[in-house]
Design a protein around this nucleic acid. Structure first.
Ligand SMILES: [Mn+2]
Ligand SMILES: [Mn+2]
Ligand SMILES: [Zn+2]
Ligand SMILES: [Zn+2]
Lengths: 119, 119
DNA sequence: ATTAGTTTGCAACTCAGTTGCATAAACTTT
DNA sequence: AAAGTTTATGCAACTGAGTTGCAAACTAAT
């Protein structure tokens, strides 16, 4: 199962959710896929994206990725096709927090219309 | 009910979720509070914040707020106390998107430790 | 008082995420 | 190869947030 899931994740151009993944199999168990994604995430093969649609999506990490806050990138949710893209080339800008606030992680999701759905 | 809810929202220093709100009443109906929050949000009295904890939180808007993307601010989730703060003074920085991507909205949540929980 | 519109309460449902437990499969040791 | 051990999978069942339909309670207007 894990190999099949990894294949699917590799060929995706956008992030996919657990139920997206489920539909790529004719016969599959939700829980197995769920646990596979969890395992992959733990091992830092993939990262999860909460784009606010209600279902967490997942995408492959880049080779070097350690999922550290410095190397985080912006995500984009298209409000027309509902696809979520990793904007790997767009790092999350530095934020100056109030005094005594320390930072561990950032989630930044830009919502709008993607180039495919334009017009 | 709406007046009571507005009072509670006004005295909050941080954003609160529906279930937080529910617990501020001895006897209350979840659905009424839910619909009250929806109404307030529609009327732009409050804005909702999805900080990734699984429950949407709500906070009063500033007087002038029209909830337009230009006037959006950063939110902060403390990983220790789980409190979510509006960083009203910290606007969301401008992001240069790939060509033909248009922007309608941004959600930016910084996670870390707040000043109260420091040390 | 009658009517019409609005707000509230209850029941019930959806859907994502999660857990426990038993079985199946894979891997180790003898 | 057989027995024992660990790991992966499948099924059932549950949680919690969010949501909807419907009827009763309330409010305001005629
Ligand atoms: Mn990504
Ligand atoms: Mn806010
Ligand atoms: Zn699109
Ligand atoms: Zn804190």
């Amino acid at each position: 199962m894990r190999e099949l899931v990894l294949d699917i994740l590799t060929e995706q151009k956008m992030a996919i959710s657990l139920s997206d993944l489920e539909q790529k199999f004719h016969k599959s168990d939700r829980v197995t896929l769920y646990r596979t994604l969890k395992t992959f995430e733990e091992k830092k093969l993939i990262h999860s994206i909460d784009d606010g649609t209600g279902a967490v999506k997942y995408a492959l990490c880049k080779e070097s990725c350690q999922c550290h806050p410095e190397e985080l990138h912006v995500h984009f949710l298209c409000l027309k096709c509902q696809h979520t893209f990793c904007l790997n080339d767009i790092p999350i800008p530095f934020i100056k927090l109030p005094v005594n606030f320390s930072i561990e992680n950032i989630n930044m999701v830009v919502k709008g219309v993607c180039s495919n759905c334009k017009d």
